[in-house]
Write a protein that binds this DNA or RNA. Structure first.
Lengths: 203, 203, 203, 203
DNA sequence: CATGAATGAGTGTTCATTCAT
DNA sequence: AATGAATGAACACTCATTCAT
């Protein structure tokens, strides 16, 4: 029992270091952008030497890839918060707010947009996004078509599909608003969300 | 008469050169991203030497700034196409399609997102966007609150304000969709737009 | 006539720079070896910035390749000195001496050996050497089989072929001696050369 | 009695480890060259961790030095094969062949040349070679001047000295041929060797 | 005895920018 | 107006070496 734990510990340490690097990198990427954040800066943020990073990641690109993967996973939980919430407007407004956090566990808007822009040039990213976005939308669609008793909105399957697209566009549009107009009046924004939701949830 | 015309000609030529550079730069930025597109590449695309670019722009950053400014202006005309159009769905779908063009007169989605992400780091950009986006939204709002006879939707001024926010989010959300799921089913997308518009235009 | 000369001048300058770099690189390679001579050192020796080197050569490897090519060409003239000379012993001894010069127009022994060793790992080099060495040997062979009246040694074509191999081995063996025993007694060495030549030139 | 044996065992083990490292290093050096073969590669070839190597050698340079020393010793036995052999031509041709083996007990041509080139920059190496090469040549000389009854060639002591130089040059020249023209016709090469030997062994 | 973790100095290379012509 | 030549600072990355365990 002690030996297995020892070997596990080694792997755990490595995993811990990887996460430390990813968090540092993410912070740097948010603050300076993918390219402007050099390995030296990331290393400094992770409190280690640049060379050590290469023990855990093959290249800077591998770091970016790893962050993208992690964020794709995080994205799903972010959406779930939306339809598990009792008050859609409040939840969506919080989403708007959170787009600007630097918390590495939560998707950051600048990172999201830069990743998305990069997808138009990097096929690997592109196909990863296609898959993940379709799955995400399917989940939204399921929620909309579930019965009200089950916490859904009771829409027909067909309608749910269109509406899922609308909601996805709207929520991601909020990311852009969050970056370009962070001071956008909360009152008006909440009214807008409520209005939008009313249309989307109408049978 | 000859001298003034000569100086005017020079200025005209200068303006022409600036535009040639901006067009070349924009193409390069779309294809490779802001940082990966080097001055050498831009110069080649503009069919001139890199040094000559510095006669017309102080730095690479100034080029980016100029493109942003130009695009801010273009953005307005893009939105206008929307409410001048008889068929909103068709117009919005065309907007989705055009987000991916490389035509320098039309806003490109990758460029738009990269610019937006950059705004979170560059205060100059940020304030430019705040102003331009507010103006844009005001225009949408005016359209929505104009009488049907005048080509508007006859909404109350208050409601029009919220709806303008919704429409802005939705249309920009389409930019993200255009990049991440370019193969998204046109049929479903059009249905989604129609559905969304129905809610937005309802009195 | 004037314009062509102008364009020629530009090319001449570039060619001059290339040669300046090659000479500097060769000196550095001789003094420190291929790998230990960094671009910074070469640049310093050429009295220019490291980046400027990249205007004239694609990579450090391209520089090495260029030096090899140049030396392959030089090798031929070196051999020719041998059989144009009235006194073979004196000429061969001078060859021994010159193996250690740093003059970039003359093959240096350390460079020669390092290039040769590298050939066992780099196929491009390898095939370049095969060709050049065969041509070189053919020339020696022709010399040996030419009539005495024509400055040759009057050997049969067959014998000349073997002897050319012997001479090539011997002369290149001198390169190794020049490096490992630079203080080798000139007297004994000359006697050795004379003795060797007597055997080689005997009908 | 137990303790001494224990320490002896340790020393034996240490010596074994050193040889394991040297063999691994030599293989790597032959395959990749001195500089391109990193400590990590050598360690992997020796099936141990890079850090452990430093328990047995002070530095990478020390490993190179040790290999050189070992090869200096091996060189002597290689030459002995030559004059112990009944058929000089066959023996010399085999030497040509063996210049390209990777067997760490036998001198490899690429290694030999790289070491020799290095000697022009490293005085320690240089003086080691001077000594060893002189001894080697003395041995050849003794062989040539020994009576035919004793397996020698019966040459005068004076002539033997020159001829030894010739033979050394020729045999080492074969190393260069082996690297640059490994496909050199065996038939012609053997004829060349025979011809050369005839001249060398003539009284 | 043996290792994985860690580092600092160095590698070749790129690129926005300046300047003489 | 226009260019080729030139540079310095930065880049991602490597590697021989050390050290705690």
């Amino acid at each position: 029992m002690s030996l297995p734990s020892s070997t596990t510990k080694l792997t755990q340490r490595a995993e811990l270091q990887r996460e430390r690097i990813l968090n540092a990198a993410q912070t740097c990427f948010i603050e300076h952008g993918f390219h402007a954040a050099g390995m030296a800066l990331i290393a400094q943020a992770a409190d280690m030497s640049p060379s050590l990073i290469y023990r855990y990641f093959d290249s800077k690109n591998a770091i970016i890839l790893a962050i993208v993967e992690r964020q794709v996973a995080n994205g799903r939980t972010a959406i779930r918060n939306l339809y598990y919430a009792p008050d859609f407007t409040a939840a969506a407004y919080e989403a708007f707010t959170q787009w600007r956090t630097a918390d590495p566990r939560i998707m950051n808007a600048a990172l999201f947009l830069e990743m998305t822009a990069e997808a138009s040039r990097n096929p690997t990213l592109a196909s990863a996004f296609v898959t993940s976005d379709q799955e995400l939308r399917a989940e939204i669609s399921n929620w909309l078509s579930a019965s009200v008793a089950d916490g859904g909105k009771g829409l027909s399957v067909e309608v749910a599909q269109w509406r899922a697209i609308c909601i996805q566009c709207f929520m991601e549009g909020l990311a852009i608003r969050a970056l370009r107009e962070p001071e956008l009046s909360p009152t008006k924004l909440k009214l807008a969300i409520t209005d939008f939701a009313a249309g989307m949830f109408a049978v």
